[in-house]
Design a protein around this nucleic acid. Structure first.
Lengths: 223, 223
DNA sequence: AGATTGCTTATTGTCAACAATTTATTGCAA
DNA sequence: TTGCAATAAATTGTTGACAATAAGCAATCT
């Protein structure tokens, strides 16, 4: 039963479980940026008291998804364009590092899977399946970062990606942009397959940098 | 009075204040890596209850300074050589980015202060004042990262530096190493003064990379 | 002696209640 | 009607108590 599974997890770490649930809630947009998180309501929703809820909220605060205002509670963080730009800059070098490290240690199987991902994404583009492309895109990036084997890197990177979802136009791409994006993916995988760390760093960093460019252009057409 | 200052801060955010105090406690080595953090004892020490203590501990957990073991509490994190290596790799690209950004936006005053720092460090070397060098070294790095203006970058970087203090040999340098280190500082500042972002990235990243090399050599003389 | 079981103690995990602060509402006067 | 003051309600901040789990210790058995 799901009930028992819940009970088992519950006994290990209730705040940890809560953190995941609240995070999902935020990332799914069920509470908009700037929105207030009512402790009592959250506690009631999960049938527990406010103690564990506050602990979970503190964790989410540290990962930059929510902010605390003294005596007023926790609010979903609002990410300005300037802040999103800063996040992108950090993400750029982290992803570059992931590519570099992966070029040094990728197995043949890793490379085969990377090629498969990018191939599937080409197919999704051909079939005009936008949702599938977005989904595969996320999986590809996560795969690269996780397979790099550097947990610090992976954790930092994923935190930043989550933060970016708090920004208004966090992933509006269409037509040409998607096509160009997957061309960059090909270059990334080629560099890894060639076991060329320096080139892999460039290709991966460049990919995020151009993504930032697309985002900023969409946000502020004047700049 | 200090008492009132404490009371004022206390009214804004007790867990936040606690987090700083416990962090200082850990970084000063008053609890060794692997050591246990007794909630009741901490609460008693500050004359408060366990609620706020647990919230502060959750925050510290998110920043990677402590780890939670279910039903056994929080322990100061033990950083293995492999983990320290990973942290250094991430720190390398973050510091590279800081140098790059600073090269793009540093004011003349920033550059003057950088030169002064490095000059003072040369003096400290000449006077064989090891403690002063270490101190200035930290201030210089923090200055560069903060003046980059990217708060995400600064926060991530400082978190990693704190984590590194959990590793045994986190800053044993002497003689030649210190001299070589400050030569690298000169190259960093030169690149910033020349407003050369690409060169600044290289110089800054290289500086952390060689520091990692020194550390790993000290930790594992065989490799 | 060494290992094992059962009991005692200490510590964590969670809760419900209370105090303090903020927000919403009502009543009143200009 | 609008602005303001007083009051009521809701929410956060903190606490002390209780339950559940783990660690320490002594007595027992092989």
């Amino acid at each position: 039963m799901n009930q028992t599974a819940f009970e088992i997890l519950r006994s290990t770490s209730l705040p940890g479980l809560l953190e995941q649930e609240i995070e999902r809630f935020i990332l799914d947009g069920e509470v908009a940026p700037g929105g207030h998180l009512n402790e009592k309501e959250i506690a009631f929703r999960f049938g527990i008291s406010r103690g564990p809820v506050r602990e979970a909220l503190r964790s989410l605060e540290s990962s930059g998804l929510i902010e605390q205002v003294p005596n007023r509670g926790f609010f979903v963080r609002r990410l300005s364009a300037a802040e999103a730009s800063d996040v992108y800059d950090v993400r750029t070098v982290l992803f570059g590092l992931a590519g570099k490290v992966l070029a040094e240690r990728a197995t043949d199987d890793d490379i085969a899977r990377l090629r498969r991902f990018v191939g599937d994404m080409d197919e999704a583009i051909g079939a005009d399946d936008h949702a599938r492309y977005i989904s595969l895109n996320f999986v590809l990036h996560e795969f690269i970062v996780v397979q790099s084997g550097n947990e610090v890197l992976a954790q930092q990177y994923l935190t930043l990606v989550k933060q970016l979802r708090l920004h208004r136009a966090h992933s509006l791409m269409h037509g040409d942009a998607i096509h160009a994006s997957n061309l960059e993916h090909h270059r990334m995988v080629d560099a890894i397959a060639a076991r060329d760390p320096a080139q892999a760093f460039k290709a991966h960093a460049n990919h995020v940098e151009t993504a930032k460019g697309r985002l900023m252009a969409a946000t502020n057409p004047l700049a």
